[in-house]
Simulated assay, not measured.
Amino acid sequence: MSAPQIVLIGPMGVGKTTVGELLAERLGSTFRDTDADIVAAEGREIAEIFVDDGEPRFRALERQAVRAAVAGHPGVLALGGGAILDAGTRELLAGHTVVYLSMDVEEAVKRTGLNAARPLLAVNPRKQWRELMEARRPLYTEAARVVVATDGRTPEEVAAAVLDALELKEA
């Protein structure tokens, strides 16, 4: 078993997958996304799981996916936006190199359009996003070793900022 080099956390649409893939490439490592693990295991999109089975079922699947990935993935790991809500997940991340990728609501609108494919934002997306972030921001901050703002930055600039913040060199 080996621990991830970097674990990326942050809200939906912040770029964890895109930045994670860039970081893995720059570090000569591999990338894994727990949301993608869930989709592959379930054979359906996360929005479908939410609609068909409800959020509690999705969160249970997410806890399992995070536990497996943290225990067995040696590269860069991206967690779903809500994974941090679980106290067990936060405990699991203690001692790991966790990076919180942050953005404000205006950046979220630009990046995602706060669209209906995101089940937690289906009604009044700006208000919902703000409320989600009010609840999650302290948890992201608590779990993270460093915070990297993504507002107005390209994925390449964010990846470089993460490497700088962690004092890591490209492979």
Rank of each mutant, 00 (worst) to 15 (best):
R57T: 15
V123W: 08
P56T: 02
A87H: 09
G43M: 09
R130K: 10
G20Y: 06
H73T: 00
A135P: 01
A143G: 03
V51T: 15
N115Y: 08
V105N: 07
K127E: 15
D33G: 04
S2Y: 04
T154P: 03
E142Y: 01
E170Y: 01
E62F: 00
G75R: 14
E156V: 14
D52S: 10
A144W: 10
A83C: 03
M103G: 00
P11K: 02
G152K: 05
V123K: 15
R59F: 03
A149R: 15
T112M: 04
E55C: 07
A116T: 15
Q64M: 11
L77S: 03
G75E: 12
T30S: 10
G95S: 06
D86L: 05
A87G: 07
G88V: 03
P138R: 08
A165F: 05
E55V: 08
K169P: 00
E42D: 02
A68S: 12
A108D: 03
L22W: 01
E48Y: 10
G80H: 01
G10V: 07
L163F: 12
Y140Q: 02
L92Y: 04
A3W: 08
L79Y: 07
T34G: 06
E45K: 12
P119N: 07
D35M: 10
M1W: 10
T141P: 01
L61H: 04
I84W: 03
E142I: 00
V66D: 03
P74N: 08
L27K: 06
G82I: 02
A94Y: 08
V148C: 11
Q128P: 04
F50Y: 09
P74Y: 14
R32D: 01
V162P: 08
R111D: 09
G72E: 07
A36N: 11
D33I: 08
V123Q: 10
A171H: 15
A94F: 13
A108Q: 02
A116Q: 10
R26E: 05
G20R: 02
A144T: 13
E156M: 09
P138Y: 03
V98E: 02
A68N: 13
P155L: 12
A68E: 11
Y140A: 02
L121D: 06
E48R: 14
R90T: 05
A69V: 08
A78D: 00
V98Q: 06
G43F: 11
A117E: 11
A40G: 07
A116N: 14
Q64N: 05
G13H: 07
K169S: 11
M103Q: 13
G88H: 01
D35V: 08
A165P: 05
A36Y: 05
R137E: 15
R136N: 08
P56E: 01
P125R: 09
M12S: 15
R118H: 12
P74G: 14
I46T: 07
R44E: 09
V99H: 06
K110E: 09
P125D: 02
R67W: 14
V148K: 04
N115A: 15
S29N: 09
V76D: 07
A149C: 09
A71Y: 09
R153W: 04
R153L: 14
K16T: 00
V146P: 02
V51Y: 12
A40E: 13
R26M: 11
W129M: 09
